[in-house]
């Protein structure tokens, strides 16, 4: 696992069934592009988060393919429908094979 990778997610604590909510996610990651060189002129190998997926109770909200042009500490904001009570799952896939997961449950009235 790359050092110090830490996800942050903001999901409203509660919603009514059928509501549209806004979700924000951020994860600490250098997103090394593979375009940069070190002091000795050697290319620093690419090392990025290449995919981000958000699901609710197993049903997909958004599935993003990331390229090296996504900024350090990738940020996403998007909307989701909350059909009923349940849990959001957020998953980030690292080039090095690591997978980072965060879950958030939401109270639905």
């Amino acid at each position: 696992m790359a050092d110090n990778v830490k996800p942050r997610v903001r999901v409203p604590k509660e919603a009514s069934a059928g509501d549209t909510i806004t979700i924000k996610t951020l994860i600490s990651h250098t997103m090394e592009s593979g375009q940069r060189k070190d002091k000795d002129g050697n290319v620093i190998p690419r090392s990025i988060i290449n995919r981000f997926v958000a699901d609710f109770n197993g049903e997909n909200v958004i599935d993003v393919t990331l390229e090296p042009a996504i900024s350090t500490n990738p940020y996403f904001e998007f909307d989701a429908i909350v059909p009923g009570p349940g849990e959001f799952t957020f998953t980030w896939y690292d080039d090095d094979g690591s997978v980072y997961t965060e879950t958030k449950s939401i109270d639905v009235s």
């Binding site: 110090n4 830490k6 942050r8 924000k24 951020l26 600490s28 500490n73 940020y75």
Partner: peptide
Amino acid sequence: DFENPAMIFVDQ
């Protein structure tokens, strides 16, 4: 504070 990327480091 969610938009502010510095907060990742504050968390750490």
